[in-house]
């Protein structure tokens, strides 16, 4: 697996990491819960076919400045700053979880930025009758099974690597959770439902069929509200983090949609 190149751009004066890896047509990806402390097999699969650009949202690993963002407009504005620094221009855009909620905002707001859109287990909506998983009220031991269908393997991936400081590793993860909470607390409804109709880009809704964070039935709500052509695909046996649970299959589904 090739290492990505790294550069740091400023968003509201705070540094945000942008990774790039691979050749071909650009493809931009906004991470989900926890962000990416390290390059992963899923990113490798995408970078093997496309020039993959992975900007870190404020507060996620590699980026700071989430505490400057007070409301959804601030988050959308910071995301636009970040994507424009990554030179997004009629580019395919992927988002996961909270990153998908922001990718959808960008696609709704600036049609010229996004050519095709992939939303993987997107946050942003909340239905009282079919609530999201209560991700903020978990014991440490419950976290892996909430996000992954392979909790033991996922717990291993979350644990501190040998070459990292244990305290700082824990703080890095807490900071990423805080960044997500800052946008999504308490129930994850960002008001996105009022703006989804503005999305005209062809959209793939991708879900783990065992997603405990965003129930797979939410795909229908997104599909109903989005104006552009929309297709839904589920990955069997995967939890919310399909990029971890089924890295290759998820990458294939994305690349096949973006063929």
């Amino acid at each position: 697996m090739n290492e990505p190149s790294t550069r740091i751009v400023k968003v509201n004066g705070s540094g945000c990491r942008i990774w790039e890896n691979g050749d071909g047509e650009p493809l931009v990806l906004l991470s989900g819960f926890g962000g990416y402390p390290n390059w992963t097999p899923f990113l490798g699969h995408l970078a093997s076919k496309r020039r993959l650009i992975v900007p870190s949202l404020p507060g996620y690993p590699g980026a700071d400045g989430h505490r400057l963002l007070d409301n959804q407009l601030d988050w959308v504005s910071a995301t636009l700053d970040l994507l424009e620094a990554a030179e997004i221009n009629n580019t395919d855009l992927i988002g996961l979880g909270p990153g998908a909620a922001l990718a959808a905002e960008v696609a709704a707001m600036v049609h010229t930025h996004v050519r095709r859109l992939v939303l993987i287990g997107p946050m942003g909506l909340f239905d009282e009758g079919d609530p999201l998983g209560d991700i903020w009220a978990l014991r440490d031991s419950e976290v892996p099974a909430m996000f992954s269908s392979q909790p033991e393997k996922f717990a291993e991936a979350l644990s501190c690597p040998d070459n990292e400081d244990e305290v700082e590793w824990r703080i890095l993860q807490t900071r990423a959770r805080e960044a997500a909470a800052r946008m999504l607390w308490p129930i994850g409804d960002t008001g996105l439902a009022k703006r989804l109709h503005r999305i005209t880009a062809p959209t793939l809704l991708l879900w783990g069929d065992a997603d405990r964070v965003v129930p797979p039935a939410y795909a229908n709500r997104f599909a109903d509200l989005i104006t552009g052509p929309c297709e839904t695909k589920t990955i069997d046996g995967s939890g919310h983090r399909v990029d971890f649970d089924a890295a290759e299959q998820t990458a294939k589904a994305i690349l096949s949609f973006l063929h």
């Binding site: 305290v167 824990r170 807490t174 607390w185």
Partner: peptide
């Protein structure tokens, strides 16, 4: 008290976390 409700992310500052984790 269920410990699930004890530690929301961001409630404790990073400085205090560093002091406490150590």
């Amino acid at each position: 008290v269920d410990a699930r409700y004890a530690n929301p992310p961001g409630y404790t500052s990073e400085a205090t976390m560093r002091a406490k984790v150590k």
